[in-house]
């Protein structure tokens, strides 16, 4: 058994059976393995919150593509994380309808409540704050997401209850 494990490329061991099963399901209806690169990055991220160098290399080997090419894809997209993020990612919309309605104040209130700037993670690992483009709920601006939940008509006063109790959450 151990001999068999050693015969595999070391990097393929990084990905779990569950991850590989989900990736295989995508490959099943793709014309070639590298075609599922984005789905696969999202699957790995769903399991681990972010995509580490080890995971990226293992995934590239599994998809039969150069790691540099997969890195180019991973870093192109706003919501593939190549650095560790907290348990919940906070996305504060900063596009024009939310800007009119004061999203800069919302972002400042989150920063003040958690003590982190955009791009940073709280020291307890609970939250990462990121800016995001228009979330497509402009009639309810300002809008933000915390993890998988969406919050509409956000006010500065609501920020503590939103962050601590998910108050007023609707599915994303």
């Amino acid at each position: 058994m151990s001999e068999q494990l050693h015969s595999l490329p070391a990097e393929t061991l990084t990905l779990s059976d569950a991850e590989l099963a989900e990736i295989d399901a995508e490959i099943a209806h793709a014309p070639y393995r590298a075609a599922v690169a984005i789905d696969a990055l999202k699957i790995v991220q769903a399991h681990r919150r972010w995509v580490s160098d080890d995971c990226l290399e293992a995934l590239a080997a599994y998809l039969e593509m150069p790691p540099a090419e997969l890195e180019g894809i991973a870093t192109f997209y706003n919501l593939i994380f190549r650095q560790p993020v907290g348990e919940k990612v906070i996305l504060v919309c900063n596009s024009v309808s939310c800007w009119i309605k004061g999203c800069e104040g919302i972002r400042a209130a989150v920063t003040e409540h958690l003590g982190i700037e955009p791009g940073q993670t709280t020291s307890d690992g609970r939250f990462t704050l990121l800016p995001i483009t228009c979330l497509g709920a402009c009639d309810r601006a300002p809008v933000m997401m915390v993890g998988d939940n969406k919050f509409e008509d956000v006010t500065v006063e609501r920020i503590p209850a939103i962050l601590e109790q998910d108050e007023g959450a609707t599915p994303g």
Binding site: S95, V96, S97, T133, C134, G136, A137, C138, D139
Partner: peptide, 11 residues
């Protein structure tokens, strides 16, 4: 892929 700023109709 509704991402045009100010657009929330397809949702």
């Amino acid at each position: 892929d509704e991402m045009e700023p100010g657009t929330f109709k397809d949702r």
